[in-house]
Design a binder for these strands. Sequence first.
DNA 1: TCTAAACATTTAAAAGTTTGAATGTTTTTC
DNA 2: GAAAAACATTCAAACTTTTAAATGTTTAGA
Lengths: 89, 89
Amino acid sequence: MDNRAVEKATNAISDKYRLGILQALAQKGCMTNTDVQELTGLSQPCVSHHVKLLTDSGLVEARKEGRNLHLRLNKEALHELTTFLNGLL
Amino acid sequence: MDNRAVEKATNAISDKYRLGILQALAQKGCMTNTDVQELTGLSQPCVSHHVKLLTDSGLVEARKEGRNLHLRLNKEALHELTTFLNGLL
DNA sequence: TCTAAACATTTAAAAGTTTGAATGTTTTTC
DNA sequence: GAAAAACATTCAAACTTTTAAATGTTTAGA
C-alpha cells in the first residue's frame, strides 16, 4: 500500500458518516445505499457521494445486484492499512 | 478510543505532508518544526498549522525545548488507532 | 408498458481546509 | 540590551468538501 492509498483510505475513514458506515458494515456484513440512507439520515445523492468515496478508497466493495448496490467491507484493504500504520511503530 | 478520536487521527494522517511528517518521525524519532519546514518545503506558518493538527489528533507529542518544538510519535495513540481499525475486521 | 424503486449525475450553495504574508512572542546569543 | 532564531497567531485568498434539489438511468413489478 503506497502513501497515496493510505491518504485516500484514512481520508475515507475521517468522516462521521463514513466511519459509521464502516462500523455498520463490520457489524452487519452487507448493506445497500438505501440502508445507508436510513442509517445516516442523509439525502440519497449525499449517500451516493459518501459511498463512492469509500469504494474509491478501496475500503468498501460494491456490487450491483438488480437495482440495489450491495456494499461490504474490503477486509484485505483494511488489513493493509493497519499493517502500514503498524509499520510506523 | 472513541469515534471522534478516530476521525481526528485518520484526518491527521490523510494529508500528503502530514503523512510524510509521521513517516519522518517514525524513521528519525524526533524532529523540530524547522526540520519539518526543510522536509516539506512549506512556509513556517503552514508547518505550524500541520503540526498542530497532528498534535491535536494525539498522534504526535510536542514538548517545547527552549525555542524549539520537539516532536515525536505518540506510539500508544497510533497503536490505539490500529487496534480500533482491526476491530472492524 | 406503466409505475415505482434504487442509484448516479449535475449543479450550486455553504462550510471547511490549505496556504503564505504580516506580525507577535519567547528564547538564545552577541 | 539588540539582533536573530524558532515558533504562534491573524488574516485573506484559493481551493476542496459537503450537502441537497433537480434530473437522468436502470431495473423490478403490476
